[in-house]
Amino acid sequence: MNSPIKILIAEDDLNIRQGLVDALEMAGYEVREAPDGSETLRLYAQWRPDLLLLDVMMPKLSGFDVCRQIRNGNPTLPIIMLTAKGEEIDKVLGLELGADDYVTKPFSLRELLARIHAILRRSRPPETPEAPPDGRFAFGDLQIEPDRLAGRRPDGSSIDFSKREIELLRCFAAHPDTVLDRQTLLSAAWEVNYGGFSRTLDQHIAQLRKKLPEQLIETVYGIGYRYVSRHS
């Protein structure tokens, strides 16, 4: 199983910080939190997160100072700045210091999760495991056999799948425990961009779930779906 993606939250407001922790953990991320700039740098050095959510106004060291110090040693870490409403100068300065994106408070958790996923997708493209020569791959307890458009249960019996269902399963299996947005899944099975096919995708996922022996595909509301490999 792939290790969970690690996100460090730097935010001095306890209520905002706890809300972010809860939302990100529910989305499947591993999370650490820091209430000030000094603790942020300490946790960053110790834990080496995959992404940093960084508030601008913090005690001890500001988000700008933290961003500058981290960027001096790590030019590629995805950083999203959390800025006060209407403070355009904060956004501009944060981007000039090397932040990848910014979100203005108060913000929508759905929007924030979508931005996190988009940045991680660009910065850390998931590795696709090498498939057997005949294309077979595992999905939960099933052995998927694309050439037969079928999956074989542990007892030897078969489940029939459509070609698009096979492509969806292949995409999920290549990215276990990872939230996949609709565009990623549509591109895998339909080779189209996000648009009017969203409802079609949801219908295919619903049919796919009916065929699977366990609930292996979770809905992540506002983003897409996740294959939960821990059930296998």
Rank of each mutant, 00 (worst) to 15 (best):
S3W: 10
P4E: 10
K210Q: 15
L169P: 01
E39P: 01
G195Q: 09
A84T: 01
P132Y: 12
D90I: 03
V192Y: 01
L77A: 03
V56F: 02
R164E: 13
A118T: 09
L113M: 15
T76F: 12
K210N: 14
R136A: 12
K60I: 06
E191V: 11
N2F: 15
A34M: 06
P213H: 04
R110Q: 13
E39M: 12
R122S: 09
K85G: 11
R42L: 00
L14W: 05
M81R: 03
S123F: 14
D36V: 02
A188Q: 02
V21M: 15
R152P: 09
L113R: 13
L97D: 00
M57C: 02
P125S: 05
G156D: 08
T83P: 02
Q69D: 12
W190Q: 05
N193D: 12
S3E: 14
K210T: 11
E25R: 13
L77V: 14
R17K: 06
T104I: 09
L82K: 02
L77I: 15
V192F: 01
S62C: 08
L186Y: 06
R71F: 06
E165T: 01
E127Q: 13
A23K: 14
G86N: 07
G86V: 04
Q183D: 15
L112S: 00
G63N: 02
I205S: 01
R136C: 13
S158Y: 11
Y227D: 02
S38I: 14
Q215S: 12
D141P: 08
S123K: 14
G195F: 10
R48N: 08
S158F: 11
S108H: 13
N72R: 11
T40D: 03
M81I: 04
A150C: 10
A150F: 03
A174D: 09
Q183Y: 04
E30H: 14
L52T: 02
S157I: 08
I205A: 01
S62G: 13
M57A: 03
I119G: 03
P176Y: 07
N2V: 14
L41R: 04
L54A: 05
D13Y: 03
G98N: 02
H231C: 12
D134R: 00
V228L: 15
L180I: 01
F139K: 00
V228M: 10
I16L: 15
T200F: 14
R209N: 10
D147S: 12
E30Q: 14
R32M: 12
V66D: 04
P35I: 00
